[in-house]
Design a protein around this nucleic acid. Structure first.
Lengths: 341, 341
DNA sequence: TGCGCGACTGCAATCGTGTGCGGTTATGCT
DNA sequence: AGCATAACCGCACACGATTGCAGTCGCGCA
């Protein structure tokens, strides 16, 4: 038993398939007599006709789907973004197709290729590397796309990101207000746009606030993970550079610090304060609850999808970048520095 | 500039499109002369020809895509399952299409309908309700599908789940071994298959181990969330029923308990022990680190996808249910009961 | 030399839908 | 009454790929 087709509907309604097609499509419905339209609709309804999107796409070269390229769904950062995206696209009649790349350029290449051959009408790209031959190629082919959570240098592309400058500034100011003067930064990898941006913002904030500006106080993590955060902190501790507060590149790096604290018998926030970045779920249940810069991921998803829809609707509009303001969530991992420090 | 089509390749190679088609498809390549095949392949390569999957699907009625229906990507349970699924499907040449339903029957209906009209070749369904007109309808239409993380009553469907009996048994035995005799169960909603299964397993375990079997000791949460877990615990506490240990229906419910502990000035595990279920990420960083039953979600995804591929390959094979064994992860939320309790 | 056979390859139809174009009918206007 | 016009509907083709069928060509064999 095969699904009913347009011909079936037409036959049942006693009209030509072309007429049935026009009657079913609200766009073209005015072209047919109201009575026959009603007849067709009734017929379609009675046999449960569902138009075949594949055939329609073949004819119209429109698929009403958007490709969403993320590194790894398992990273708690992305699900809220994806939900935000879908909550905009679905009402607009679009579907989204999600692929993971694991930040592997090879996989990214094939996944995007697969999406493109599936005729997606736009791309939302959240992968993290900064240099990006793939992106310039897509851009040259004028593929509609929006970057989320990252920028790319030397390319004028619409992008939605958190305002990293603002967020890092808030973190540093918070620690400064508590009395910290020597603050360390465990930066994310410089190869990522956010890693670089936050590190730069950190230097600026430290200078603006007149805190001690020691290059040795910022250490780069090779990867945005607990393990690499821990490793970076160990290196910093072993180097003997003194500090009382840490601004971590993201929450995972901050949590890596927690591991080192227990390793070395330090207590947070008594010995050292830590502030994270992102406000991933369940941070309030940690030991201690992590003070962090909260990034509105869901709203970022929302804005990204809107931007893409705009780009599709008006391809000539100049690309614009949207910055969303984060907010500081003060919990219990930050306090005044110990008197003897 | 439009994408190159089969005709372009054929023209460039100086053959008929039909021949080009046969040459490009490894299945039918033996039908054409090796030299012409080479010529066609070279031509295709030179202009970067990518077959149009939409046109192909229209003709062959095959899409090589699987629909994955989950309640909410934001629930940390699902991303690892999805990754497991993809890690099996991708090498097998299938793509997966993910949709969220928020456990809303209406949304579920429309999403599944949308997947079906997109001609997906199989469905992986992870939504949680137990009674399920949609499922019986799909089953009657002999749609290939596998359930994950849930069973449905009265339907012979392939399913992959964690062995809840075993897991709950391990949790209860762990508490019993520590000396607890009055153990409470904050059950998930009975309308979900796992909620019901775990509650049943709890009663069995309690009886088998000769612990006190008081119906008042199990309270049903309306939803698998921290808020509802907290609410259930408050009710239990207010009822005056004594207990020293809690087996929570899942980790979120267990974390809800944490909130109540701080509310009421209780300490865990000194006043009461808690064990969760699932082992979601970052539980080791909680205060206190949560003892929990670890469910192999990634492996569940793997098995689910395999099962579906089997079902597609051999539709007549009787459906089988796969149970994956969980393991107990002992952290710091469980200890011997206080002497005075 | 003629026939049969195998190896290729081209023709044309098809999947289900959308749409430009032309034809038919009814209506209004002079 | 005759004609222009609008409203409506059907015909046929297109989208890009696959595939059954038939035709061509060369070669071997009697």
């Amino acid at each position: 038993m095969t699904a009913p087709t347009l011909r079936d509907v037409a036959q049942l309604a006693g009209v030509h398939p072309a007429t049935a097609s026009r009657a079913l499509n609200p766009q073209t419905r005015p072209l047919v007599n109201a009575d026959t339209a009603r007849k067709v609709l009734r017929a379609a309804d009675s046999i449960g006709y569902q138009p075949n999107p594949i055939a329609r796409s073949l004819k119209t070269a429109r698929t009403a789907t958007i490709g969403v390229v993320i590194p790894d769904l398992t990273n708690p950062l992305f699900p809220p973004i994806v939900r935000g995206i879908e909550d905009v696209l679905t009402p607009a009649g679009y579907n989204s197709w999600i692929v993971n790349t694991d930040n592997d350029p090879q996989r990214e290449e094939t996944q995007v290729e697969s999406l493109r051959s599936r005729q997606v009408e736009g791309l939302i790209i959240a992968t993290a590397r900064r240099d990006h031959p793939l992106l310039v190629r897509l851009h040259r082919q004028s593929v509609k796309m929006v970057l989320v959570n990252r920028r790319v240098e030397g390319l004028e592309l619409p992008a939605v990101t958190a305002d990293d400058d603002l967020g890092v500034g808030m973190a540093v100011a918070h620690l400064a207000r508590l009395g910290h003067r020597r603050i360390a930064h465990l930066a994310g990898p410089r190869s990522t746009s956010t890693g670089a941006a936050r590190a730069r913002a950190f230097r600026h904030a430290v200078r603006d606030l007149g805190l001690v500006d020691d290059p040795a106080l910022t250490v780069e993590c090779d990867y945005w993970s607990e393990a690499h955060g821990a490793q970076a902190l160990r290196g910093l501790l072993d180097s003997g550079t003194g500090f009382t507060g840490i601004v971590a590149g993201n929450d995972l790096i901050a949590l890596g610090c927690y591991d080192v604290f227990t390793e070395r018998g330090m207590t947070c926030p008594d010995d050292v304060s830590v502030v994270g970045f992102n406000d991933m779920p369940f941070l309030d249940k940690m030991r201690p609850p992590l003070t962090t810069v909260s990034v509105p991921h869901y709203e970022i998803g929302i804005e990204t999808a809107r931007l893409l829809l705009d780009t599709i609707a008006e391809p000539d509009r100049p690309p614009r970048a949207v910055l969303l303001a984060p907010s500081l969530v003060v919990r219990a991992s930050t306090a005044e520095p110990a008197a003897h420090a």
